[in-house]
Simulated assay, not measured.
Amino acid sequence: MPRAGLTPDRLVAAAADLADEAGLDHVTLSALARRFGVKDASLYTHVRNLKDLRTRLALLAGGEMIDRIAAAVEGREAGRDTLGAFAGAYRAYALEHPGRYAATQLPIDQDLLTDSPAMRRTADVTYGMLRAYGLEEPDLTDAVRLLRSTFHGYCALESTGAFGAPRDVQASWDRSIDALHVLLKNWPREKRTTDA
């Protein structure tokens, strides 16, 4: 019989807190069982295994992150203003919730992503912002990959204190967003071939 009050949602929320406190690598079923004062085996009533728990954590964190981003971009003028708000919300979440953010980088089964309302919302918000730059496929996908790798790389370096130059980190971030905006406005469109 499941322990009273122990639910999948409570387990995932506790896993998210633990990830932020100790790091994603420290999120284990044993660590969660200790938090709840139960035996490891009792958690299997609520999650299948560690992979299932981490997948749920990734989906939770992805939903939290896109909610923050969507709120930041709502009502803004398309272009630099929206890009800056999107990027700022992304960076703030990554730095404030390092364990949750790390979970958003985990590979997830494509079927689960397709069925996830949060992941569909992520695509809607991200692609909506980029369509304002006049991008279409396959350029949209390429631009998403560029932004994600830029934001992720910057946040990863910043979170470890790897920016050692005396230049203000926020000033460099702002200039990076300016540069991305110029690039997106002048995106080199992929040449499309036509059948003769």
Rank of each mutant, 00 (worst) to 15 (best):
A94Q: 00
L53T: 03
M129P: 08
T122N: 13
Y154F: 15
R80K: 14
H97G: 10
T122K: 10
A196E: 12
R175E: 15
E21P: 03
A156D: 06
I108F: 04
A196Y: 10
D9P: 04
K51L: 00
I66M: 07
Y90Q: 03
P166H: 07
F151K: 00
V169Q: 03
G153Y: 06
H26V: 11
G75K: 03
L6G: 09
Y127G: 04
P188C: 13
A61Q: 01
I108C: 01
K185M: 13
R192S: 03
T141M: 15
R34I: 03
Y93F: 11
A89Q: 00
D174H: 03
A58I: 05
P2K: 07
T141P: 08
A118M: 11
A92L: 09
D81L: 02
V125F: 11
A196D: 15
R76W: 05
R167C: 13
W173Y: 13
T114N: 08
L60A: 01
S149F: 13
L184T: 02
R76K: 14
R48L: 10
R48M: 01
W187H: 02
A162T: 09
A16Q: 08
M129E: 04
Q110R: 15
L32E: 06
G75T: 10
D174F: 05
A16N: 06
L60P: 03
A14P: 00
M129R: 11
M119Y: 13
L112T: 11
Y154A: 06
S172K: 07
A41C: 09
L83V: 05
R100T: 07
F151V: 04
T7S: 11
T122I: 10
G161K: 01
A162C: 11
R3E: 03
E137M: 13
L24P: 00
Y90R: 00
A61T: 01
R189T: 14
P117E: 06
R148I: 03
L59P: 00
S30Q: 12
D67T: 08
E21A: 15
P166N: 11
L60F: 08
